[in-house]
Amino acid sequence: MKLKVGLVQESPVFFDKEKTLEKMEVLVRRYADEGCRLLMFPESFIPGYPRGFSFGTRVGSRTDQGRQLYSDYRNNSIDLKGPEVKRLEELAREKNIYLVVGITEKQDNHGSLYCSMLYISPVEGLLGVHRKIKPTGAERVIWAEADGESLVTFQTEIGRLGGLICWENYMPLARTAMYQKGVEIYLAPTADSRDGWTATMRHIALEGRCFVLGCNQYFTKGMYPEKYGKWLGEVPENLCRGGSVIVSPRGEVLAGPLFDRSGVLIAELDLDEIARNKLDFDVVGHYARNDIFRFEATGQPETHVEKGQGPVTD
């Protein structure tokens, strides 16, 4: 099976979910018309990864200005029950394309936010959501932690999908939770634009014998609206270089890494390559040594099977 995929290395319209959705719609229609069956957007693309902001926090103190910034950020975040998700579902159906979208998620029953990854199908709409189980560093000020129910996988028409966000990918057992579900297309939205991230993506591809799609944004200080950019202080103009990359199950780079500009990486994946490379190494098969090691991800759900795909066994 051959599958054309695209990674969107673009900037959002920061703190403006409506204009960001409008930008997304233009991109989705364009690349769906060029034959992409899967299009992926970076970590917290809606309403933007808040790089450089302190939200007025120090150990032992918060500021009213920081609280207002948090409120603005929350107001432009996405509620899964809201109209924004329905809009993305309709777009996926219209263009017959799978969408993987990084968002900051709000829930109307409490004030906490989550760094989330939406899986949207042209068949079912919203298949499910992965919420980051461990925000990194100062991210913990704005994003709560999720639990094992967030370690989701999906059997779809285009293969078995799953993945982790940014530095979750440095958690060996979180990766194992994905491998044991047989993920074929491993999705890794990120905000890490260092050269070493490419090595991480290649390692995961070799370890999991899966295709790995690492998607980042390109972002400069000047892209922030003036009312927010003035709060940043001394930060470099080039805030995020990008580095999106697509890697084969053999660890070979198929497209990218793309640095220092916006763009969309496109590659054609041959899903038969996954089985061929299990001859050499299978992390949950003949290399697992279940007589020595035991692993359980508490609360991890069974793989969700898209309508029309028939039963599968994890």
Rank of each mutant, 00 (worst) to 15 (best):
E94H: 02
L161E: 11
G196N: 06
S248H: 10
R87C: 06
T298E: 09
V264D: 08
I292K: 14
E145H: 11
Y224W: 06
L187A: 01
E34T: 03
L113V: 05
Y119N: 14
E234H: 08
M24F: 01
M201S: 06
E306W: 09
K278L: 04
N169Y: 04
G256S: 02
D314C: 06
P50H: 05
E139Y: 12
D72K: 15
G159V: 09
A267Y: 00
R131P: 03
N76Y: 05
L38E: 04
E22K: 09
P249F: 12
V100F: 00
P311W: 13
S77R: 13
P12D: 00
G256Q: 01
L269P: 00
R37A: 03
A138W: 05
K86M: 02
H286L: 09
R276P: 04
V100G: 01
N109H: 08
E22V: 11
R241L: 15
I165N: 05
Q300R: 05
Q180L: 12
S150P: 11
D72N: 13
K230Q: 09
K230V: 06
T63Q: 14
G222S: 11
V13H: 13
E43I: 01
G243T: 02
R194F: 01
G56Q: 09
H304P: 00
I133M: 10
Y186D: 01
E10H: 06
T303A: 12
R289S: 02
V235C: 03
V284H: 05
D108P: 11
M1F: 07
E124F: 13
N76H: 10
C215K: 02
K230P: 00
R261L: 03
W143Q: 10
G299Y: 11
P189R: 08
D192W: 05
D72M: 14
E302Q: 01
P135E: 14
T153A: 11
K95P: 00
I78R: 12
Y170E: 13
E234N: 13
V129M: 15
E94T: 09
V247H: 08
Y179L: 04
A144K: 02
T303D: 02
I292D: 09
D72Y: 12
C166M: 15
L127R: 04
G233L: 08
R250S: 00
E18R: 03
M223E: 10
L99I: 09
A267S: 07
V312G: 09
T57N: 12
F14E: 15
G6V: 08
H203F: 14
H110Y: 13
I292L: 15
E296T: 05
L206K: 15
I266V: 13
P249E: 12
E149S: 11
S77Q: 12
A267F: 02
Y228G: 07
C115L: 08
P301D: 10
G60D: 04
L254R: 13
K278P: 07
V13A: 06
D282R: 11
G214L: 07
L99Y: 08
K23P: 04
I97T: 01
A191L: 07
R209A: 13
K4Q: 00
Y224R: 00
R202P: 08
M223K: 15
D270K: 02
K19E: 09
E25P: 03
S150N: 11
Q65D: 06
D64S: 14
P301A: 14
R29N: 05
Q309A: 13
Y49F: 15
F211P: 01
A199K: 01
D195P: 01
G111P: 00
I204H: 08
T104L: 01
E273K: 05
F41Q: 14
L279G: 07
P135Q: 09
